[in-house]
Design a protein around this nucleic acid. Structure first.
Lengths: 337, 337
DNA sequence: AGCATGACCTGAAACGTTTCATAGATGTTG
DNA sequence: CAACATCTATGAAACGTTTCAGGTCATGCT
């Protein structure tokens, strides 16, 4: 099934190689008659461009890559959707790779992408130190945009969401509803998001109330149930009246455990989660949650990337920080008492 | 930043072009001394293979594509994860495209993939009729494996899950728990999955009970709440004692609405969902659900694809059908009455 | 008629690999 | 020592495009 090339098309249409190429790439420079003859030949032979050859000649490809921590994580799938929109608009192709939080896999992916001479890479890197892989890509002229990670230096573009602000929004809302004994559930604190959300919460609270911190081992429903069990065990007078969770999964776990142990949400304890995943609004008690502009994160990242890829030297690196937004639902709606 | 090629490496190491290529592709045929010299040169120049050139020469690429209906759908993300495992094991790359249920986008993706001369395509096609696009790919020698769609003809590989069996499992479970008045909630019936699950349910029930069917407009939480409202309106004596939903989202909606209207699950009404999404087990009342082997679907599809791509003429097309599995949780656990 | 202009088309060169027939060197055998 | 086998290394050819410096020809101008 070895496919016909431009050469055969040319012979078939009785024109030269260059003319066929012109029909394909600069149709206006070819006489309508000739053009039609070529197009007919193309249709007849079922000719399909060979992208490898085209790229080889061009020196770079028309694909953009996005490397996420986990393809199955709803946060990233939304980011991917956003990026997809922009990339497709630019007639390019988005390839999605997932590192699975594994440095080695991330490395392998980046190697392959480099061999493919991709136009650019959107990435949420594993870990936070220096990123020799990314430095190398950049040095090779492949633009890199950090996603959901700020970057200290100004030598790169990045898009992120202000997690400190997110924490602040949640706590300000709870204060405003009259809560004074709050709890923060989240962990491990090595994850910057977890630490930032806490920092924002603590700062907002200042000395207007107390914040009980429960560190969890992960951001899962199970961890949430576990942490909630501690709260239940407290004497009612000392028990926080509202819980802010680093994540909706934790919040769902907390909700589940509290309900099961006979505490009512929001009557006995209010809950605010983070991420506003699809199921936050569909929970037994619809969850208040801090929403991140996920698709927009992806769109903006892709825009910055294409801008850098096309703009070349004139490009100014930018660090974009989005603001999260609090979505209030039943789990924290009513004023306390 | 135009990168050094094999040629520069050769000059730098004082050997010929072919030798460098040999070091890269058949290291054993090169003397250790020479090999080392070449490797040093490669390291020093920061040489990186150019995949376009390699592919051009080879005539085919090392990437496999998967085209799904929606990247953000948990079902597909799991399928992708499965496929990823197999493809990466084969030192190939998986590119994920999403058609967004849109024929035109699907078409565009397939065109691009064809231009890239991908090694093969895993696809859940939009719609169900004949697929000229797929025929064309196949005719061009690009293997195509259908995912989550059986295929009548035997001229293709496919992997799917037996939805009729899934419906049967759910209803048999409910019968066994003593339920006799059942409801099926799902729609639109134009979706084969919805129709098949219903068919299985109806067949399993036969004349052992009655099945009230409520058609929904979609498979969403909102649709579930809406459908549940109808049930609540029924006089208690006529009300089904158990509901089987075509989908977990529907089931979550039903659960939410029933709870809100004062009906207890599972005491007043039992629920069985379908898909066993992550949140099924984390719902207010953990949901029983029919689980599909999603990752395995992806793995098997990828295996079939690679087999076809490598096996060439000797390849036998296969239609694999997996069996779903019922996961019983609190929403339907207890015997009725 | 002579010439410049433009419109259209041509074909060779280059992109960076891999492959393969062959040359050269070294070792082995009778 | 000749003949032969084995092991390494060589460099030209080919893969399918795009680009670009020209070539050809009709047209309009002087």
């Amino acid at each position: 099934m070895a496919t016909a090339g431009i050469k055969e098309v040319a012979r078939h249409a009785g024109v030269s190689l260059g003319t066929v190429s012109n029909v394909l790439n600069r149709p206006s420079t070819v006489t309508p008659t000739t053009r039609q003859r070529v197009l007919d030949a193309i249709a007849e032979l079922g000719y399909v461009r060979n992208d490898s050859a085209r790229q080889l000649r061009a020196g770079r490809s028309r694909t953009v890559a996005i490397v996420v921590l986990d393809v199955a994580n709803p946060f990233f799938t939304d980011v991917v959707r956003g990026a997809e929109q922009v990339v497709e608009e630019a007639a390019a192709m988005l390839v999605v790779c997932s590192s699975g939080e594994d440095r080695a896999r991330e490395h392998r992916h980046l190697e392959l992408l480099e061999e493919q001479r991709v136009r650019g890479v959107l990435i949420t890197p594993v870990g936070h130190g220096v990123q020799p892989d990314l430095e190398r890509l950049h040095a090779r002229g492949i633009p890199v945009v950090l996603v959901d990670r700020g970057c200290g230096q100004a030598n790169r573009c990045s898009v992120a969401v202000d997690d400190v602000l997110g924490g602040r929004l949640a706590v300000e809302h709870l204060l405003e509803r009259g809560h004074r004994r709050l709890a923060y559930i989240g962990g491990p604190f090595a994850i910057p998001q977890v630490a930032d959300r806490h920092a924002g919460a603590a700062a907002a609270l200042a000395d207007r109330g107390e914040l009980r911190v429960t560190q969890t081992k992960g951001l899962t429903v199970a961890a949430g149930r576990h942490a909630a069990a501690d709260l239940v065990a407290l004497p009612a007078a000392a028990r926080p009246t509202a819980v802010f969770c680093a994540n909706d999964l934790l919040a769902l776990g907390v909700l589940q455990e509290l309900t099961e142990r006979g505490l009512r949400v929001p009557d006995d304890i209010a809950i605010v989660g983070y991420d506003d995943i699809e199921f936050a609004g569909a929970a037994a008690v619809p969850l208040s949650s801090v929403r991140q502009p996920r698709e927009q994160l992806g769109r903006t990242a892709a825009q910055l990337l294409l801008e850098e890829a096309d703009g070349g030297a004139t490009h100014q690196h930018r660090q974009v920080v989005f603001q999260p937004e609090l979505v209030v639902r039943r789990s924290s709606e009513r004023p306390w008492r």
